[in-house]
Design a protein around this nucleic acid. Sequence first.
DNA 1: TTAGGGTTAG
Length: 334
Amino acid sequence: MEHEDWRKYKRTIEIFEKMRETGLDPTLSKGLEFDEFTCSTVISACGREGMLDEARKFFADLKLSGYRPGTVTYNSMIQVFGKSGVYVETLNILKEMKDNHCVLDVVTYNEVVAAYVRVGFHDEGVAVIHTMASRGVTPNAITYTTVINAYGKARNEDKTLKVFGQMKELGCVSNVRTYSSVLAMLGKRSRPEDMINILHDMKLNGCLPERATWNTMLVVCGEEGKQKYVNQVLREMKISRYEPNKDTFNTLISAYGRCGYEVDVAKMYGEMIMVGFTPCITTYSALLNTLARRGDWNFHNKSYFLLVFQALDVPMDRLVEAADSASWLTWKIK
DNA sequence: TTAGGGTTAG
C-alpha cells in the first residue's frame, strides 16, 4: 500500500472508531439511527483529519437517507469548511441551513465570523455581529475575541480597540483569551502604556494572565529598541507574583537578546541558574544569537565569545552542541 | 455533539 493510501486508511479506521463510540455502525448502510451527536462527531472527525470529501459525502448520504440535519450538524459542517478556508462553501451551507428553517444559534454565527476573518474579510466578520444581534442572538466573548484577534494580527490597532470597547459597552465580559489578543496587538504596535493599562484592567476583572500571555508579550516586545517594554512586562510579572518557569527564562533571554541588551541577557541567564533551572539547547542558542547580533563579532575571533561565556560560566560543549543543532555556525560564517 | 488565542535561537 502506498504511504498516502495507508494514511488515508488509518484515518478512515479512526473515524469508524469514532462512529462506533457514538453508537453508529459504519458497516451498515441502511437503517441507521442518526442523531445530532453522531452526525456532528463524524463531521468534526473528518474535518480534523482534513477529509473534506468524506465530510461532504457523509453529509450528502445523511440527507439522502432521510435525516434532517439540525443546528449542531450544520454548525459542524460550517466549522469544517470555514476552517479549510473555502468560505463560499461555508456560506452555501449557511444558506441551506436557512432554507431548511434550521435555527441559527450563537455557535453558527461565531463559525461564520471565524470563516470570514480567516480569509481576511474582517469587516464582513464585524457585520455578522450586527446581523446576529438584530436577529436576537447575543454575541458572546468568543464572537468578539474572534474579530479582535483578527484585527490584532492585521496590526489594525484602531479597529481592535474599537471592537474591544464595543464589547465592554454592551456588557460582554472579556476573558483571558480576549485580553491576550489585545495585549499581543499592543505589544506589536509598541504601546506599552496601554499594555500595562490592559493588564491592570484584567486584574480588576479577576482575570489572570496565563503563562503564554506573558510569553507572548515578551516575544512581541523583543525587538530593537524595545527593551524598556520587556522591562515593563517583567516588572508586571513580578507584581502579579507570577512564577517563572524555564520557558519564561528562555523567552526573557531571547527577548532581551533581540533588543540587543546583552547585560540583561547575562542577568537573566544568571537568575535562571540561581533559581535552579537547567539551561537547555534553546537557552544556549538564544545566547549565541544575542552575540551574533553584534556586527563586530566574528566566530573566528573567539575573544569576545570566550569573554562573555566564561563570565557566565557557560559550558563550552553545550554551546557547541547548540551551535550545531541550530546550524548556527553555517548561518554565522557566511 | 459544534465556536475564539497564545509558548523561546535565525
